[in-house]
């Protein structure tokens, strides 16, 4: 017995190493699940405070480009508003409530960002106190950014589109063919459009937008434009590369979108036994 204890004492450094590595591996595993604990990432209070102070200082350097983006977005919205305005002597008939707006939008500031790893995340300065929930879609005036992962009271972490495990349901605008956008871990400017069948004719320059099918994003938010179409190794699907419309190196403000009918959709999927998203 004494010998065993002596032996264990002799290799105590190795045992400690194994124990601490086990903790680290457990953290890696639990962080990769969709709903991790919010204590050990950048949405926790202390880390969030430090990052938000840092971004308050650095914000001044990007104000010009942020303003430019906002003005351009405003111009687009004004044009759209003009086309929706009813002429003075028109009649208006309210249609079914199913056609009413069922998305609500919120704005937030990005305080932490990464784009060179294979699993990139962002942190924003809004949390559950501001109505942010896990699973909400995130985009900016250029295009899709990602999905909310973890939420603390005042901060939230976002899985970036530049994350090897995030799929965005998308469609090609010219022929309404559906696919999934997935980043392959290489260049942060490009992603792959997957599951487009071989018989579909796709041309370079075709726009790719969100399909609105997985109920996270409303339909029509830009994702990118097709730059390369190859037959690929898969016998059923084309190998399509798209240039992402969002410049991830310059994200400063984002919009979050919540589907107000998500709960109803979820319960429907659950009762019919279908997997969601």
């Amino acid at each position: 017995m004494q010998r065993i204890f002596l032996f264990l004492y002799k290799i105590r450094a190795f045992l400690l190493f194994v124990a601490l590595e086990a903790v680290a591996i457990w953290l890696i595993a639990s962080n990769n699940s969709q709903q991790g604990s919010a204590i050990f990432n950048s949405s926790n209070q202390i880390v969030g405070n430090v990052l938000s102070t840092q971004s308050d200082i650095l914000e001044y350097f990007s104000l010009a480009s942020v303003n430019k983006g906002l003005v351009e977005k405003n111009a687009v919205l004004l044009t759209e508003l003009e086309s929706l305005r009813r002429p003075a002597d028109s009649a208006y008939i309210a249609l079914d409530s199913a056609l009413e707006a069922n998305f609500s939008f919120r704005g937030a500031k990005v305080i932490n960002n990464s784009l060179n790893l294979t699993q990139n995340h962002l942190t924003i300065n809004k949390g559950s106190n501001h109505g942010i929930k896990p699973g909400m879609g995130v985009f900016n005036e250029e295009g899709v950014v990602g999905r909310v992962k973890d939420v603390s009271r005042n901060y939230a972490t976002i899985i970036s589109l530049l994350h090897s495990e995030l799929l965005i349901s998308s469609k090609i605008t010219t022929n309404d063919v559906f696919g999934s956008t997935k980043w392959d871990g290489g260049d942060p400017g490009f992603a792959k459009l997957m599951y487009v069948p071989r018989h579909v004719v796709v041309k370079e320059g075709d726009l790719v937008v969100t399909s609105g099918y997985n109920a996270v994003f409303p339909a029509g938010i830009p994702i990118g434009a097709v730059t390369e179409v190859k037959p690929g190794t898969d016998t059923n699907y084309l190998d399509i590369t798209i240039k992402l419309s969002t410049d991830f190196s310059r994200i400063s403000y984002v919009y979050l979108v919540e589907n107000l009918q998500q709960a109803e959709l979820d319960s429907l999927y659950q009762s019919s036994g279908l997997p969601n998203d």
Binding site: F14, F17, E21, A24, A29, S114
Partner: peptide, 20 residues
Amino acid sequence: VDMFYDTMGIHTSALLAVGF
């Protein structure tokens, strides 16, 4: 470092190997 990088556990496991 992991908390700020949002890479929970990866920096820790790599640094532990060096420390060992």
